[in-house]
């Protein structure tokens, strides 16, 4: 049996193994080591939640603390990527994208096209996403749809320790800029992870459960809630197929369509806000390309169109849960039965 480590350890291991394998890989970000210029311990933090802890001492000079200047160091990572290095920059919380968006949106994402295919920008931007830490509106967003909208970027959101390691190694080796979204509530999740290097390819959804009645498409932390709902529904005789997208750009359209062609029903679960989101995008994709297969309406389970609230009473309402997913599935099942 493969050994079990956490999502967080899987990310740390991927970074360490790739840095050992490839001397052009380096890390830059705010407190990715911690303690720069301070009288006390170096590598004091290893990232605000300790994800990069230990790498500073293993790779001298290649784990760089930056001043709190998101435009500055994200831009520097973009610039370094054009010069044959493979930077992994860390945007502590994805919410801070507001500070540095230009360097991703207008620089990294555009170089290759704008320069007629001559630029290669192998940048990885690791960033924490998602609600659930009572961290309120500016430290809890799920901005995957924002990145996914931008041509030139690849967007990854792993749901398990195994995927986290394999997708991060793929991201580092990939020659395009990759936004690597780490869900903060998954950091402590344990799972089987091979000790060897391996890559999980982009654009291949993972079938986590085969089912004939309805397709649940999701990614990130919602995968686990969808599985919980599917297991509950199985006891009621509803057989859900669960697809974990793994990457939202590229998007595995084929697997989504293949599954809906089989089940005829779709619920999309997305922790992000609903307008112009992956949920709407996937719903539109299926309505457009698999309309004939649909036996009932498409349902979306998403956060509401509000910022992420602080109070636990509200945040728990904000985040989709298994009960909401089950209700959506039942709604689709009921609607399609009555139509039949």
């Amino acid at each position: 049996m493969a050994r079990k480590i956490s999502y967080q350890q899987a990310i740390n291991e991927a970074l360490a193994q790739e840095m050992r394998r490839d001397s052009t890989v380096f890390i830059i970000g705010e407190d990715v080591a911690g303690g720069a210029g301070a009288p006390g311990e170096q590598d004091a933090w290893g990232g605000v939640l300790g994800v990069t802890k230990g790498l500073y001492h293993q790779f001298p000079g290649r784990v760089l603390d930056a001043p709190l200047s998101e435009i500055g160091y994200v831009g520097a990572a973009v610039g370094a990527a054009t010069q044959g290095l493979r930077p992994v920059c860390e945007l502590m919380f994805v919410d801070f994208a507001g500070c540095c968006l230009d360097q991703i949106l207008n620089q990294a994402a555009k170089f290759r096209y704008m320069f007629g295919g001559k630029a290669v920008t192998p940048l990885v931007m690791r960033t924490m996403v998602g609600a659930g830490l009572r961290a309120a509106a500016q430290h809890s967003q799920m901005l995957t749809s924002l990145w996914t909208h931008i041509p030139g970027l690849k967007v990854v959101c792993p749901s398990s320790p195994y995927d986290a390691k394999g997708l991060l190694i793929q991201a580092i080796r990939d020659n395009d800029p990759v936004i690597f979204c780490e869900h903060k509530l998954l950091y402590s999740m344990q799972g089987e992870v091979p000790e060897e290097l391996y890559t999980v390819p982009f654009g291949e959804a993972n079938y986590l459960r085969d089912g004939d009645d309805i397709t649940l498409v999701t990614y990130g932390r919602m995968v686990h809630l969808a599985m919980e709902a599917a297991n509950n529904l199985a006891r009621q005789g509803i057989d859900c197929e669960v697809l974990d997208l793994r990457t939202t750009s590229p998007l595995d359209e084929d697997s989504i369509l293949e599954s809906v062609e089989k089940t005829g029903r779709l619920v999309v679960i997305d922790e992000a806000n609903p307008r112009c989101s992956l949920a709407t995008d996937i719903s539109a994709l299926v309505a457009q390309k698999a309309f004939a297969a649909l036996k009932g309406p498409i349902e979306m389970v998403t956060a509401p169109h509000t910022p992420v609230p602080f109070s636990d009473a509200l945040e728990d309402l904000y985040i989709p849960d298994a009960a909401k997913i089950e209700a959506a599935v039942r709604k689709v099942m009921d609607a399609s039965r009555s139509a039949a």
């Binding site: 195994y162 060897e196 079938y207």
Partner: peptide
């Protein structure tokens, strides 16, 4: 899936 995991190993 297990076979794919094996095949992906370096």
């Amino acid at each position: 899936e297990d076979m794919l995991k094996f095949k992906r190993l370096e």
